[in-house]
Write a protein that binds this DNA or RNA. Structure first.
Lengths: 338, 338
DNA sequence: TTGTACGCGTTATCAA
DNA sequence: TTGATAACGCGTACAA
């Protein structure tokens, strides 16, 4: 049978409160009893029952994670699941535990904030959230410390991948290869990251005095391979005006683009070079292996963890803070060699 | 400020226990008060604080998930994360919530079972567990209802993909294509599924009077693409005795095998056909797109959920039960057409 | 049908 | 330095 704090107290001829103080390192206790208790606790393997603990104290040692609005997809997302994993590893080091925030509790529909208060979560990590979701906005503007990865909105402290840097690396790489006819392929602009990449692309192209017009960017209508394929066909049809370099804002789209080009007899990288974005596992196994922008999911997750933990310890006034994590260009075989 | 059950009781001039009975549908209550209370609860959005609830009752409406021994990998696994997602969707319908079981609580190291008891989880789902992990064995043999996906061990109720069926489908497909020289490529035999596929392959080959000898199976030393590539090179070297069909027990290995064959000038599917296993996202985008055995992760997850929920409601004596989920063969372009 | 009283296991406050 | 006592919020016998 499980020992309670009362059992432990009895067996040591002490009061429960004394045990509690020692276990939680609070209050003044004589070194002797402290040691005696600690030793006993160690041996008997006593651990406070967390529900009782949470009920009585304020803290739950728990961090809520808003992972996805569309709960039907989720864990398998190559980018976000990595961030989450890294975040998890980091916070667990410090004794916290993560729980997935959902919008129901038993048979009740709750807002995210209600759920958080009900569970007394100490902080919230937001990944893959729609910034217009009132549920999320409510949490962000509450008193609960929040940090996000990849989501930027008012009053929110965010850790994001440096999207501008990725695009600049891409264009610079093209320039290094003496290419000047560069176009971009973006996913749907509902995602902030695609917006940023678009903007940077335009600005940097202009900045570098490269040709930029309405044909310089193509926006895919979806995120998947097939959508990329359709874009690739469009590009292939510009027979008299093929680009030398295509910057595609996601690897999966890039895969589609490449296949479509090849289907039309345009060789990659001989006729045109392609750079992807994300460096998903498969990028290195594609044919041709994909030159791409690698995002440092591990750093994003662990910095998010650090910052959230800090905010929990020392609550600060909420305001928008954005920290950028550098990306790197991984050169493979979808781009010409120098 | 958050309302408690006492607040609600006061405002309705009733006793807290009355409210509790109504909310939890227990005890006899007059229709009038029931309705009155329900209405008020609805409007005020009262929801019992879960920690207090769990502390007081036995149930936590929570299902623990043992997801991985190596916590450093995890969410992104294409096969298991899908099962988990499906499981999660299913149990959430019925008011349960999933939590990831870890082996620490605050600053204490706990066994899985201790953790479960501490949190009062109502049941446990095991995915990706090492069957020799004493931690897991302890949970399985405890009084807590358990169900596993893809893990088989004594006293455990398991839902698994029908591995034998996958192999039989593969061999039958080869036969349909009039191929008789069939070999198999397996991943490391540390995984039960690979073992089963191996055994089935041998038995069914013999059963069909097909040639089976020490060259009929090659076991890759790892799970990844590179490992598959090495196996592919080995196969390619058997110039005078190439197989007509290669059954590879994982898509990722198959990708490697195919590339290695091609590198040696052996064309797929013209010279040799390849069937993969798993039907991961990328299988359809590979070149050539991969004929493969599709595992029904959704069915596995949701059946696991059903069975676990049932076991929680009506605890049954623990014994080994294994239920199989059918697989299907998806025909693509890595195999000859008929 | 409703209400009273106690227990769940812990922490915090205050007194000794 | 230690202990008694009262919350924390809820469920549940049992009494009314």
């Amino acid at each position: 049978m499980k020992k309670t704090i009362v059992d432990v107290a009895k067996e040591l001829n002490l009061a429960p409160s004394t045990i509690s103080k020692i276990v939680n390192n609070t209050g003044r206790i004589s070194p002797e009893t402290r040691e005696r208790v600690l030793k006993y606790v160690q041996e008997s393997g006593y651990v406070a029952m967390s529900n009782a603990r949470i009920l009585s104290a304020k803290k739950s040692w728990t961090i809520g994670v808003i992972y996805s609005d569309i709960s039907l997809i989720g864990f398998e997302h190559p980018f976000f699941s990595r961030i989450l994993q890294s975040f998890k590893n980091h916070v667990e080091q410090t004794g916290y535990e993560i729980v997935l925030i959902v919008s129901r509790l038993g048979n009740n529909e709750l807002t995210y904030l209600e759920w958080c208060r009900n569970k007394k979560v100490d902080g919230v990590l937001i990944v893959m959230g729609n910034i217009n979701n009132p549920n999320i906005i409510e949490v962000v503007n509450s008193t609960i410390p929040c940090v996000s990865a990849d989501v930027v909105m008012p009053n929110l402290h965010s850790i994001i991948s440096n999207d501008a840097m990725g695009i600049i690396l891409g264009i610079d790489h093209a320039l290094k290869l003496k290419m000047k006819k560069i176009i971009a392929v973006s996913g749907p602009l509902t995602a902030r990251s695609f917006m940023t990449r678009m903007d940077t692309f335009r600005n940097y192209m202009v900045h570098k005095n490269l040709e930029y017009n309405e044909n310089s960017v193509i926006i895919a209508d979806e995120f998947g391979y097939e959508s990329g394929y359709r874009v690739g066909e469009m590009i292939a049809n510009r027979v008299d005006n093929l680009p030398e370099m295509i910057l595609v804002f996601s690897d999966v789209l890039a895969f589609g683009v490449i296949r479509a080009l090849e289907a039309k007899g345009i060789r990659v990288p001989d006729d045109v070079s392609v750079i992807g974005y994300d460096d998903i596992d498969f990028a290195k196994h594609y044919t041709p292996s994909l030159t791409t922008i690698h995002q440092d999911t591990k750093a994003i997750g662990s910095l998010a963890a650090q910052e959230l933990l800090a905010a929990i310890e020392h609550p600060i006034e909420k305001r928008q803070i954005v920290k950028y994590i550098p990306v790197t260009l991984i050169e493979r075989n979808s781009t010409k060699k120098i």
